[in-house]
Design a protein around this nucleic acid. Structure first.
Lengths: 347, 347
DNA sequence: CAGACTCCAGAGAGCGCTCTCAAGCGACGC
DNA sequence: GCGTCGCTTGAGAGCGCTCTCTGGAGTCTG
């Protein structure tokens, strides 16, 4: 198995094929400008020797790493318990693979990790970074942005709107929320409440904003603060019912909260959707389909968000060759993905 | 921001500190054998210049990468929808961070990816690999095992028991299953069914085996084949009820199946746990706590499994320095983690 | 058929780092 | 007081690769 005989080098391939290192290198890297018979000979030598380029040596001279860091900054266990990141990772992974790039995963937890990650990124070990920053007060995005590494954020960073060269990919949280609430209005509901997410996250803030856009007259008593968890949704729902017993619809900021809300409604003896209609957000299948009744919700294409983040980053990386120093000609710009309403039974 | 002035090298630090490259290198890598005043001067120079070692250059000579690949081979979306991998990743990430190693994530889907991953690992880009191989017929583990890369598997690979140098970390699926079923027996239940996972996965096979260990007389009609999803659990439960209407308990191979089973039981008018007691497996909090009634289940410490995998791999990597060629003195061996029963309301 | 040009292959200089080896120097023993 | 030893530092040789530059064939044009 673990042959101690070290792996073949370019030199070895060159010797075997009877050509120079340079020629082998050319063949291995695309093979333009080498005549066919030679290409063939080199190919065969590579094959026979089982040659694989040494990435370290290559990086040393090219200064490219064909690797992208994915930074997930999340102190809470909770986030790991929902499939959100997993799906984004999946999208990212696919896109990176298609570009022959590796995915270096940086999981951070606590302040020390921030320093570590900042240093790692500033150290130039990767070509770029994809950063998930969910909390408004998270220092990490700033740190990274200052590190001079090409970066695309997942979700709108709280401070990002003013800063011109911040690139992010996000769902249209506000628009989606508006759609949800308008749908409830269309159903003839008039006393519509909202269960928020944690308001230190932009997505939660945006969804609340969308709710307010439609329900301009809704007072604060129609808004219960949740935290994206079932438990939070449940207690927010109870509060809402206390303050407004004749409420006839709820828009929950995510499916998990909605599932908690359903539970609270059931306990209070209300029927869904007859007495109270419920709409969620995310369309997380294992949740949305399994609730009782199945959840009407706003779908966001999470995997596509991941894919897009990677594409944006790699696209911005591409035209490096010439013209160093001038502003990137095709600097990518942020993308906001549309959402769609998925009708099930809860509204 | 993105200063085009390239990052400082060892050379630059050496010049600034008025010493040789070699000395700076020594200080940067632990600093033994360098006199204190020099150490201090080098430290300051590093600080002032913001020097970060170039990992590529370092790897080129040391042949270490301080990076570990995590290979997740899973064609199904489903697996991404449960928090299993996320939790393992978390454990792995923590342990790797503690050892200053990076985590390179390789997501595979389909045969082409296998080749790609095999090549990547054989290419010596990482110091080792952590591989999740769930399916018995997965060619990937074999490929990797043959690639001569130190590897620890997550979950017992199907073919792994005979092969001496296969190292894996797994939960005691069989023992846990026995505990679950014995618990039901202890409750006085006698007509106990089992909903399996997909039987091409060792964990599902082992859990079924554990069930059989206790219910030695249970015929095949007491076993319904599921697939670890709620939908699969639901239909398996229905089958089971068809075949054996007076069934009084079910052990489901995971919590997701159990949630489906609960739904089927509810629809059939049975009360849980009065008519039928239900026990799951995994103790996935968002699932197990949210079902109605909350699920009694077998807990496995998933994050700890991840941590252990990383520790085993890194531990086996450590004593490389001398003695190349001889069998690793402290070759790690597989670990099977115990499980515990968590009582909630469903049984 | 000469000159200019194009195309292809090889030579060689590093990329930034580690690590061996040798040199320098003070301390110690006889 | 001289030889020897140990400890600290510096010099220099690569690690495996890319990429520029140069030289040698062909090819085309006038």
């Amino acid at each position: 198995m673990s042959e101690e005989t070290s792996r073949p080098t370019l030199e070895a391939v060159a010797a075997r094929a009877g050509v120079s290192r340079a020629t082998v290198s050319r063949v291995v890297n695309g093979g333009t400008g080498v005549r066919e018979p030679l290409v063939e000979r080199v190919r065969r030598a590579v094959e026979e020797l089982g040659y694989v380029p040494n990435q370290a040596a290559r990086s040393l001279v090219t200064r490219r790493h064909d690797a992208v860091a994915v930074v997930i900054a999340e102190p809470e266990t909770r986030v790991f318990a929902d499939p959100f990141f997993a799906l984004q990772l999946r999208g990212i992974g696919k896109e990176l693979t298609a570009h022959d790039s590796q995915l270096v995963l940086l999981l951070t937890e606590g302040r020390d990790d921030h320093v570590r990650v900042g240093r790692y990124l500033a150290g130039g070990h990767v070509d770029g970074a994809l950063v998930f920053s969910l909390h408004l007060d998270d220092p990490l995005p700033g740190l990274i942005h200052g590190a001079g590494v090409p970066t695309v954020f997942g979700g709108r960073p709280g401070w990002g709107d003013g800063v011109p060269d911040v690139v992010y990919v996000d769902s249209d949280n506000r628009g989606g929320a508006r759609d949800a609430v308008r749908y409830l209005v269309g159903l003839g509901r008039t006393r519509i409440g909202h269960i928020t997410g944690p308001l230190d996250q932009t997505s939660a803030v945006d969804r609340l904003q969308g709710f307010r856009d439609v329900m301009v007259d809704a007072g604060p008593r129609m808004v219960g603060e949740g935290d994206f968890t079932p438990a939070g949704g449940e207690s927010a729902m109870r509060e809402l019912l206390d303050r407004c017993p004749d409420l006839d619809a709820v828009f929950a900021a995510n499916d998990l909260s909605a599932s908690g809300a359903l539970r609270a409604l059931r306990e209070s003896g209300r029927r869904v959707p007859d007495d109270v209609a419920v709409v969620g957000f995310d369309d997380m299948l294992p949740v949305a389909e399994q609730t009782d009744p199945p959840l009407t919700t706003i779908r966001q294409d999470i995997e596509e968000m991941g894919r897009l983040m990677a594409r944006l980053l790699l696209g911005g990386l591409e035209p490096r060759g010439a013209g160093a120093g001038r502003e990137a000609a095709n600097a990518p710009s942020s993308v906001v993905l549309p959402t769609t309403l998925v009708r099930r039974a809860s509204a």
